Simulated scan of single mutants.
Amino acid sequence: CRVTVPDALGRPYVADVNEGDLWYFPAGQPHSLQGLGSDGCEFVICFDDGDASEFNTLLVTDWFAHTPPEVLAKNFGVPAETFARIPLQNLWIFQGKVPGDLAADRAAISKAGRVPPHPFIYQLGSSPPTKESKGGEIRVADSGNFTVSTTVAAALVTVRPGGVREMHWHPNADEWQYYLKGKGRMTVLNTGPNAMTMDFGPGDIGYVKRNLGHYVENVGDTDLQFIGVFRTSRYEEISLSDWLTHTPPALVAQHLNVDEATIAKWPDNAPGLMLKS
């Protein structure tokens, strides 16, 4: 998929994204998406505003169609007849021509040689794991490594068969999940106590409120993969085992009625993912 977007200073950006990549368009910045290859592209869009939808998106074809030709002529400095054949209905998604060479598009839009200082895409799927173990991998994109993404953070989680996304919670944002492949089982613990366990497969959506403890098990025989999205500039999580192993062991032993020797065996490095022993 080819994306285009200018930054707030009008510096244009165009790039191609592939499977596993992210793009981020700041609110109010005009942008476009074009399918590449013979099969186009399919993607999941996440907004930092729950009211966002295609029905409150300003389309350039709508603006042209609802502006008098004489005003368009004044605005663009060409005769009004130039706009005699503009579409009178909005073009939200339509069939066009497959884009040509990326370098040619970049040359065409960079007339003044201005480019944004930071990219609007991030190759999350091929980035180095933030956490990695025999149980799987976690890759994170937030404003720390994807500078332009100031309102959304994401974590791509891969859990190996028999593995578990460790018991944890997120202190700074709710988590919205989209399951990409495999079979997962998530349990969420709320106050009360109230707990809910559900199974998830490709195309399913999970949701966990901020500060609620949860874990995800791979209950299939292939890798489980999902992406978690957070409305925040920074990804944060607190590991249950990391917290307890950095609390005085005598206190934990009294609280949970386990001996200190057992507590000493618990992971103390917030591994993110564990494999069934």
Score class of each variant (00 low, 15 high):
4 T>D: 04
5 V>L: 13
5 V>P: 02
11 R>G: 03
14 V>M: 09
16 D>I: 01
28 G>R: 10
32 S>K: 09
32 S>W: 02
33 L>P: 00
39 D>I: 00
44 V>G: 00
44 V>K: 00
45 I>L: 12
49 D>K: 14
50 G>Q: 11
52 A>N: 07
53 S>P: 02
55 F>W: 06
59 L>R: 13
61 T>V: 02
64 F>G: 02
64 F>C: 02
66 H>V: 00
68 P>V: 05
70 E>H: 15
73 A>H: 11
77 G>H: 11
78 V>H: 06
79 P>L: 06
80 A>N: 08
83 F>E: 11
84 A>R: 15
87 P>F: 11
90 N>Q: 14
91 L>Y: 09
93 I>L: 13
100 G>V: 03
104 A>T: 15
104 A>Y: 07
104 A>N: 10
108 A>R: 15
110 S>K: 13
112 A>W: 07
112 A>G: 04
118 H>C: 02
118 H>M: 12
133 S>I: 01
134 K>M: 10
142 D>N: 12
144 G>P: 00
144 G>V: 03
158 T>Q: 14
163 G>Y: 05
167 M>N: 07
172 N>I: 02
175 E>M: 12
176 W>T: 12
176 W>G: 03
181 K>N: 09
182 G>R: 03
186 M>A: 12
186 M>L: 05
190 N>F: 13
198 M>H: 12
200 F>E: 03
201 G>N: 05
202 P>W: 08
205 I>L: 13
206 G>P: 03
214 H>M: 05
216 V>R: 03
218 N>S: 07
222 T>K: 15
224 L>I: 04
225 Q>I: 01
227 I>F: 02
228 G>H: 06
232 T>E: 10
235 Y>G: 00
243 W>I: 10
244 L>M: 14
246 H>C: 08
249 P>W: 09
258 V>G: 09
259 D>L: 08
264 A>S: 14
265 K>D: 09
266 W>A: 13
267 P>A: 08
272 G>S: 11
277 S>T: 08
